[in-house]
Design a binder for these strands. Structure first.
Lengths: 337, 337
DNA sequence: ATGAAAGCGCTAACAA
DNA sequence: TTGTTAGCGCTTTCAT
């Protein structure tokens, strides 16, 4: 199989002294055939080094065994952690996965949908994508599943995500429990509703403890530059106006690290004067001094549940519309003495 | 294009009142046809929402416009940084990319090669893979390019990598210049010769400065567990035997961070008593206290050069056998006062 | 400049 | 149990 024309089912058929249909039956283990035939065919396959031509199979059967995985940026550790498990899980079921980096561009996402349609993908997994799924761009027959985002679409698209409202409430209540009286919220780039859930959790926690929800206490990261840097600047500016807060809930570890840097640069003690909780339990959390408290979202489960849902759809079943993966508050040094 | 049978070239032909051959010619802009025909066909394509069926195209033309990207673990930040740029670059040339996580398993790599062959990929990009490329598994017609590794293979396989010997020498000479008299080398899991280059640079630097190269001064990480943890343990154990060294050159930032943690835990001042230089300039380097000195390898260039080489091969040209991407020593707090 | 037709490798309906 | 055959959507001779 290392040179010349690749061997096809016809070559195998000739070698085994049967028809191509029989070879196909053996390969797909469907139609009926004698045990003797199976052996002859399998021997021929092994000896010839036959490798199925998926283009032909796909053309004929309308199944490519390819899945499109849409992601804002595979180099982001949260997404790549999910991507790893997605690929592992789908490969175990015989699927190959295309990576598609949208860079949060609706235009690129749109283009990928067309490409994926063209390549006859059997399904699409959208990870933390845009809110607006391009309408009517993917044939209805191709199932989509969203991980960590709420799709707005005419189609009913199942999603798998964390319970962000609860997780955020937990984080903020923890800060309150630690004695914080004024807590800032650092909002990440809000391409998706999930981030809004975090804001909701923040507000709920404050409200349920009779604390004021002040608009000026939410710091917005725009996503135009690395969010760590943006957060660092935002917090530095805020500190310059006076240290009128004693807690920070950041909707990502990236921004939490930025905040921590600004605080340390200004000589503010963490967790002594200001306590911080981040989000995602990325590797970063264990590298900083102090180590960051954070929300663990279990990327492995997010990925596996997402694949399960997709595989169910591929099998013609109707999966749950929403799957929630549990989260946990991980308390480290940045938020408790 | 959202439901029913997808529109094919035949439908377009009918709409435009031409033959399928003509539609094909217009689509591929090759054969000759009148300007009037082009317009009619293009209108029909636009109105019908025609999307090419790549399975059919591939079957016919033996080109899939798919590339296989083999990687040990996409969740590793060095690989995912390369993966991002690979996908970006190839997508710009019309290719889709399959991710394949081998987990450094030769068996899985082997399986992927078969799958990729079956899916008619036009080329394969191996990133930091195993040394032994499975022989005779991929048809000779499918070009392979290796990034950051030396393939051992019967085939002549172009590679793109950093000048690791030079980079390592630079790093160690910097430590020596900073006054270090005994420098440890933390070797990462050596699935590839590239890591051996780093050991070579380390030895060369010591030798050229008349310093002894002691086998006990090389700490081996096995790769069976997260290398950060392994390194931390190895260094902690070494410290327990007495602090007889004043410099560490780690062949990855992961292990450098592990070393730093062990040192800090033992109350050893960095860079006061021991200086450290890592490798890769990962995000980690700016999160630790002190910030880590490291080697910048330019993942973007590694990726882009790799893609260029592959695209050249796809265009039938013969690319250089070896492409070296420059490296730089980045001095931060961990190695200089 | 355009059409008719063969065929890429495979599967499935139909015959035997 | 097995073979024959049509056809998936496309490109590419070969005619015209």
């Amino acid at each position: 199989m290392t040179q010349g024309k690749p061997v096809s089912i016809r070559d195998v058929a000739r070698m085994a002294g049967v028809s191509t249909a029989t070879v196909s039956r053996v390969i797909n283990d469907n139609g009926r055939f004698s045990e003797a035939t199976r052996e002859r065919v399998e021997r021929a396959i092994a000896e010839s080094g036959y490798v199925a031509n998926m283009a032909a199979k796909s053309l004929r059967s309308q199944r490519s065994y390819n899945i499109g995985m849409i992601v804002p940026d595979i180099s982001n550790d949260f997404f790549s952690a999910i991507a790893l498990h997605v690929e592992r899980t789908l490969a175990a079921s015989g699927y190959s996965v295309f990576v598609c980096n949208t860079g949060n561009s609706a235009e690129r996402e749109r283009a990928y949908f067309t490409t994926l349609t063209s390549k006859l993908v059997d399904g699409v997994l959208c990870i933390s994508g845009l809110n607006e799924l391009p309408e009517n761009l993917l044939p209805d027959a191709i199932p989509i599943v969203c991980i960590d985002r709420y799709p707005a679409s005419g189609r009913r698209i199942p999603r798998v995500s964390s319970d962000d409202v609860r997780a955020s409430r937990l984080a903020v209540e923890h800060l309150i429990g630690q004695g914080c009286r004024r807590i800032l919220y650092i909002s990440s780039y809000t391409a998706d509703y999930a981030r809004q859930d975090r804001a909701t959790g923040y507000r709920e926690a404050l409200a349920s403890h009779g604390m004021a929800v002040r608009p000026v206490d939410t710091l917005f990261v725009t996503g135009t530059r690395p969010s760590m840097e943006e957060a660092e600047e935002l917090v530095a500016r805020r500190i310059a106006q006076g240290l009128d807060f004693d807690g920070i809930f950041a909707s990502s570890d990236h921004t939490a690290v930025g905040a921590l840097k600004a605080l340390r640069a200004a000589g503010v003690d963490v967790p002594g004067q200001v306590r911080i909780v981040g989000y995602d339990d990325s590797i970063y959390t264990r590298l900083t001094t102090p180590q960051l408290s954070t929300i663990q979202r279990h990327t492995d489960q997010l990925a596996e549940r997402g694949c399960e849902v997709l595989l169910q759809m591929l099998a013609g079943k109707t999966p749950p519309a929403v799957t929630i993966v549990p989260t946990e508050l991980v308390v480290r040094e940045s938020s408790s003495k």
